[in-house]
């Protein structure tokens, strides 16, 4: 049952990720990307990691992708000259990275030991994750939020300069 769910969700995720890369229209790319994010959320649900799935839905599927779509839809694409052709140079430079990624994944698949999630997962993973986040990992968590705050302020300042200049 779980294997079936994993195979279905995983194949949907791979197909939609490929679609996001291969499709030409930028809006269609967003739709495929949305499908990819939703299938990741579904796989979290299948793993009984409810909180992660919920956050994936709220933050990625809604907040971030809505902003992407907002920006992309407002660009007048018919006025922008699209690149028609084949990215030769980029492909050559990307090949080593591609093989490195494939090698790492293969190494992980064959050698790494996957931990048995079923025993470790607490039933109410909301409070468990909250407890861990605010005791053991409080410093990285606060640091991350601080970095995000700085990034936000920076973005506002850049935006202001653009608007004034």
């Amino acid at each position: 049952m779980e294997l079936l769910a994993f195979v279905v969700i995983g194949s949907v995720a791979i197909v939609s990720a490929l679609g996001a890369i291969l499709v030409k229209s930028p809006i269609h790319v967003m739709v495929w990307f949305l499908g990819f994010i939703l299938s990741i959320a579904a796989s979290f649900f299948a793993l009984k990691a409810d909180l992660l799935a919920g956050l994936q839905l709220v933050i990625y599927a809604v907040a971030i992708v809505v902003f992407y779509v907002l920006v992309i839809t407002t660009i007048p694409w018919e006025k922008i000259k699209m690149f028609e052709g084949f990215y030769k140079k980029e492909l050559i430079f990307a090949l080593p990275a591609f093989f490195l990624t494939i090698g790492t994944v293969l190494y992980l698949v064959f050698n790494a030991k996957l931990s048995n999630m079923r025993q470790m997962l607490p039933k109410d993973n909301v409070s468990a994750l909250g407890t861990v986040l605010f005791t053991k990992y409080i410093v990285p968590f606060e640091l991350a939020s601080f970095i995000l705050l700085i990034a936000m302020i920076g973005a506002i300042i850049f935006g202001k300069e653009k608007a004034n200049g």
């Binding site: 409810d50 909180l51 919920g54 956050l55 839905l57 109410d124 993973n125 909301v126």
Partner: peptide, 8 residues
């Protein structure tokens, strides 16, 4: 019956 119903 999700644990994160409201988030959902």
């Amino acid at each position: 019956n999700l644990n994160i119903a409201i988030l959902y």
